[in-house]
Simulated scan of single mutants.
Amino acid sequence: MKKIVIILSIVFNLATANAQIKTGDALPNVQLNNDKDVAVTLESFKGKVVLVDFWASWCGPCRQANKKLVPFYNAHKIENFEIVGISLDTNKAKWIAAIEKDKLAYPQLIDAKGFDAKTALLFGVEGLPSSYLFDVSGKLVATNPTEEIILTFLKK
């Protein structure tokens, strides 16, 4: 019995490790609702350089990062660039209020189960904020990229 438990544990850990997105993987075909309660698929952003930004209204470092992301987005959105925010908030009202307060004009999606959310598990999000950069072909090229790394892919 002990060996069966160990084998099942190993199989589960391998399956979980393989389920997490890694460099070179495609933009996942995940569907979430936006702040207007409309379903949006991540895959629909393929063809642009896409920064998927995980955040939450209660996360102080996320709110600070938003202050830098907003002007960066405004300066580069015409360069085939998109930021897609994915909130791990469990309180939709607080999420909507944070979007308005931080003036987030780029697409905002919610996966309202916190760190147990399917997208958080798929991406392997362990802390907030966390971001993932996809190139125009839809392949993951960087995790938690700097502005300089993003600009490198915008110039390609």
Rank of each mutant, 00 (worst) to 15 (best):
A112M: 09
R63A: 01
E100S: 15
I96V: 15
E148V: 13
L42C: 08
E126R: 15
G138P: 00
V84R: 04
E82C: 13
D102F: 06
K118H: 12
A56R: 03
A19H: 12
D102T: 04
K118N: 13
N13T: 10
V11Q: 02
K67I: 06
K113L: 10
G60T: 14
E79N: 15
T152E: 12
D102H: 10
A75V: 01
W55G: 14
N80T: 07
V52H: 03
Q31A: 15
T41P: 01
V70G: 12
M1K: 13
I83E: 02
Q64I: 10
A105S: 15
K3I: 07
L122H: 08
N34I: 00
N29L: 06
L133D: 03
V52C: 02
D89H: 09
L151N: 09
P129R: 01
L51K: 08
R63W: 07
W95N: 04
L27D: 05
G47N: 07
V38C: 00
A26S: 14
F12K: 00
L128D: 09
Q64S: 10
Q64C: 00
I99D: 01
N33I: 03
I83F: 09
A39C: 00
D35W: 01
F123I: 09
V52I: 14
V38I: 13
K155R: 12
F54K: 05
F153A: 10
I150H: 04
V38K: 15
V11H: 06
F153Q: 09
V125N: 05
K92P: 01
V49M: 02
L8F: 14
K22Q: 11
E148Y: 04
E147I: 07
I7R: 09
T152Y: 09
L133A: 08
Y132H: 05
P129N: 01
E79H: 15
L42Q: 08
G47S: 07
H76C: 07
V5H: 03
W95R: 05
F81K: 06
R63T: 03
G60V: 14
K94W: 04
N91G: 11
V5S: 07
L27Y: 05
G127F: 08
A75H: 03
S130L: 03
T16H: 10
Q64Y: 13
I6C: 00
T41H: 02
A120Q: 02
N34K: 07
D35Y: 09
A117T: 01
